[in-house]
Simulated assay, not measured.
Amino acid sequence: MDKKNWFILILNISIIFIMVYFRASIFSLVQILNMTFYFLLIYSVIFLLMYTMKGGFYDGVTFGFRRFRSVMSKQQDYLDEWKEKPLPSSKVSQRIYKIARFQSIALFILLIVLVLIYYSYQ
């Protein structure tokens, strides 16, 4: 695995603990679970959005809106090549996609472990 992914994971976990320490009135496992879930939610939304973009889900809609705009535009701009513009699937950064995927999976595993620890001591 990439060292950058692990560094970002350690950084995320550190930020989680710092935020729980300063924001929560009581430093508890429930607060850590909640903050971990929030981080997981953010990374999961980013990952899933990039996954659907990478798969070409939004390409047809984008192309349709560009074509509609060019047809309905009152002033014709012949320099604006709407057919040649890159589609959203070609704009997805593979580096950011891999980081978001790794962080989502790692934080999900961490959340599962924390939930198991929480319910084992209840």
Results as ranks from 00 to 15, higher is better:
T36C: 04
I15F: 05
F57A: 06
V20L: 03
W6K: 10
R67W: 01
S28V: 00
Y119E: 13
L9N: 02
V113N: 05
F63R: 10
M50C: 03
D2M: 02
I18Q: 09
F63K: 10
P88Y: 00
K91Y: 01
K4G: 15
G56V: 10
R69Q: 13
L9V: 05
M19V: 14
N34I: 11
V71T: 14
K85L: 13
I10H: 07
V71Y: 05
I26H: 13
F47V: 00
F65E: 14
V61G: 12
L40H: 03
P86D: 00
I112T: 08
S73V: 09
G60R: 08
T36Q: 05
Y58A: 09
D80C: 06
I109M: 07
Y121I: 05
S25W: 04
V20C: 03
A106R: 00
S120D: 05
S70I: 11
R67I: 13
Q94Y: 04
M72N: 14
G64E: 05
K74E: 09
M53V: 00
V115T: 06
G64T: 13
F63A: 11
S44W: 15
G55F: 03
G60T: 10
L79K: 03
F108E: 04
R69Y: 12
V92H: 03
Q103M: 13
P88N: 02
F68S: 14
L40D: 00
T62Y: 12
L107N: 05
S93P: 06
N34D: 09
Q122D: 12
Q76L: 14
L87C: 01
Y119R: 08
